[in-house]
């Protein structure tokens, strides 16, 4: 069964996500911030990363940048679930290889396992040869 890493700083949301995904039979690993997510990914080797954008210590954008720079992690598909819809963020994240960028508040919990199944069914697509550091520079 597919293994999902949930990166989410809000405990309530983590709890709800875990409950729902386990109902659909996914194995769930949790991380509360970006740094933890990167660490856990190396150990747990998840099939998919659910990533929040605004988190303490290391935010989602930084995680994306680091993953894309790492040979080991760059193939892991990312599903961004965030409430941070500052227009251009979505564009940048997508250029950084994020498969889906969804506003959490607008998403029915039941849709998440569906999305995950869809993403996992996609053929492996190598992330675009984009200069992430330039992208991140632009963000700052």
């Amino acid at each position: 069964m597919a293994r999902i890493l949930i990166t989410e700083d809000e405990a309530d949301l983590r709890m709800a996500l875990r409950a729902r995904l386990e109902m659909s039979g996914f194995a769930v690993v949790e991380a509360t911030n970006g740094q933890e997510a990167l660490d856990k990914m190396k150990i747990e080797k998840p099939d998919l990363l659910i990533l929040d954008m605004m988190m303490p210590l290391m935010d989602g954008m930084e995680v994306i940048g680091r993953m894309r720079a790492s040979d080991q992690l760059k193939a892991v598909p990312i599903l961004v679930l965030t409430n941070y819809d500052f227009g251009f963020m979505k564009e940048v994240a997508k250029e950084g290889g994020v498969v889906e960028y969804i506003l959490k508040a607008g998403l029915n919990l039941d849709d998440i396992p569906v999305k995950i199944t869809q993403i996992l069914a996609l053929p492996d697509s190598p992330p675009s040869g984009l200069n992430m550091s330039a992208l991140l520079d632009e963000l700052k």
Binding site: E10, D12, L13, A16, L17, N83, K104, A105, N108
Partner: peptide
């Protein structure tokens, strides 16, 4: 964020 928690738990 709290609204999402509310929603998901209610779901």
């Amino acid at each position: 964020t709290p609204l999402t928690a509310l929603r998901w738990i209610l779901e």
